[in-house]
């Protein structure tokens, strides 16, 4: 499962182009990649599953930008950062949980 360049884009946007959040986002996506590879080994789920999730995460982040845009309100902007991060945690955590428990 190569294509690290695409993942870099997902990381950058998940971090809302903020260098500090990059560490968090890249850690989560690294978890997703490793988790998906264990899934492939243990349960014969094609690793391409990880790409689907990455694509969906990025699409959700972009769509979530509307919240940011409509309000312009600082508190809502924080939520706009947190929601995709939370969503990514859930989405990347699921395969990791499967991999560790299975």
């Amino acid at each position: 499962m190569a294509n690290y360049g695409y993942t870099a884009i997902v990381v950058a946007w998940l971090a809302r182009l903020n260098p500090f959040y990059i560490a968090v986002a890249s850690f989560l996506l690294a978890g997703l990649r490793v988790g998906v590879e264990s899934l492939q080994l243990d349960m014969q789920v094609p690793a391409a599953f990880g790409w689907i999730i990455e694509g969906l995460v990025l699409l959700s982040v972009l769509a979530g930008g509307l919240l940011h845009y409509v309000s312009g309100h600082p508190a809502l902007m924080d939520i706009a950062i947190l929601i995709p991060l939370l969503a990514a945690t859930v989405q990347s955590g699921t395969p990791i949980l499967y991999a560790t428990s299975g």
């Binding site: 695409y6 391409a48 790409w51 990455e54 972009l62 845009y69």
Partner: peptide, 26 residues
């Protein structure tokens, strides 16, 4: 994403590429 949620067109296209490659390979 682009017209309803006013997302960034460049990045949305790349997301569609990642998503589509994943779907097809899966």
């Amino acid at each position: 994403v682009v017209l309803l949620f006013l997302g960034n067109q460049v990045v949305s296209g790349l997301a569609i590429t990642i998503f589509g490659l994943g779907l097809a390979n899966y």
